[in-house]
Design a protein around this nucleic acid. Sequence first.
RNA 1: GGCGCUAUCGUCUAACGGUUAGGACAGAGCCCUCUCAAGGCUUAAAUACGAGUUCGAUUCUCGUUAGCGCUACCA
Length: 476
Amino acid sequence: MLRVRFAPSPTGYLHIGSARTFIFNWLYARRNQGTMILRIDDTDVDRNTQASLDSIFDGLKWLELDWDEFYRQSDRLDLHRAMAQRIFEKGLAYRDFVPAVADSEEKSHGGGPWLFNPGSREVTPEESDRRAAAGEPFVLRFRVPREAGRIVRFDDMVYGAQTKSTADVEDFALIRSNGMPTYHMASCADDLDLRISHIIRGQDHLSNTFKHVLIFEAASEPGAVMPHFAHLPLLIAPDGAKLSKRKHGPVVSVTTYRDHGFLPHSYVNFLCLLGWSPKDNREQMTRQELIDVFSLEGVNRSNAVVNFTEQDPIDAKALWLNSQHLRSMPVAELAPYVRATLEQAGLPVPEDVASFLHLVDVIRSRFFTLTDFATRGRAYFADDFVIEGKAVNNLDVPGARELLRELGDRLAATPEFTEASVEAELRKLAADRGVKAGVLINGSRAALTGQPVGPSAFAVFLCVGRQRVIARLRGV
RNA sequence: GGCGCUAUCGUCUAACGGUUAGGACAGAGCCCUCUCAAGGCUUAAAUACGAGUUCGAUUCUCGUUAGCGCUACCA
């Protein structure tokens, strides 16, 4: 049975890299009828925040991503400690009574890596037990094998065969002196206990995996199968640095894209294209298509740049992809998002469903985000819109306002109100007054929508509705 | 410093020894057109560098350089 997990630590908002890790896990699970597990890795009590946890849930909810099982590590500390104890009893871990050094530089300088505190490995079991019983604090460390030539190896489904000499692996901590398991201990214990079959996570854990292999080997029963590993390339900033809120601002948070009016799925689609490819030049894909085609073989090995600037936090390709989805998805699927956007902006939603769908269908052809419906599309829903500068230019064409008012009068005098009838009326007026139809067409668009650009003008007349058209033209 | 990973157009990527190195976004131009998008066409743009293996390297090997990651009683 295939089981994957996404295991964030609640120490910040939901990062877009984390979101992508969730998505790849989720896609892999859904693709292979597996189980998606959400596990909150909250063993660092000092840094955990409720706000961060909320942000994770909010982000995943917005992206419409779900999971089948939920755990939090703080509920499972006994399991972690028991597994550490088992490793200790096998002699594969030892108590280190040396206090933590405040400055970690102290450890590592001097050329080679820091491996362990001198003497701590050699403390006799009797002395160790005695000092522990006396209440002396200690950190439980893994006793990394020190025989010359000992190699740790594993196969990564993305990065291939990996090896590392144990001479380069330090005696890492399993249990802190305050009794809390470390990330490595808790993560491995849970992965084992939850029978995770594939650990799919960021590449920043690639070198940690050697430690995890050591823990798995020490903690599992003989013959137990180790999880498979698949590491994902990182998402980085245009300057090559890791994305960080402090340095790069809001681009790193999924809420930024939500607030910019992205469709959840199009953002998922965009994230998928960072570090993964279906290899057939397809870019715009539905969620089902993504599920059908996702595979670890398609995952890249080099980091992917999220292309933003200080002026514009949105990657141009993400915006393009959003517009593609916005314009091509079934309008009935889009409508609820538009409805929510309008309601949030305090705009009334047309009651008649059919005409609402038609309206959305017409105006979405020029929009890029959901936000556009409430801003550039405001005049379709409310009367309190402002006429943009460039649109004003269209009205300021000599004679335009008079003509538009007259058009309003003529339309008021004609009961028929279809694209064809409006066009006929407008062209007739232009011919009667000897002006180009464009003056009336562009002027109408400006007067009716406040926008210099938009859908075909005659479609606009119908979308705005007869009453409003007449009122707006006459009031120009 | 040590160890690990990575390296194709500005960006995302395709090409699992033989291609005029393909696609997409962004850029430029043209067409279409009631505006603006969309769409169509065209254009500019890349194999980090150096060796080696091979009849032939983007592709395999080694080195250099660069970037990233790990090197915490963070995750």
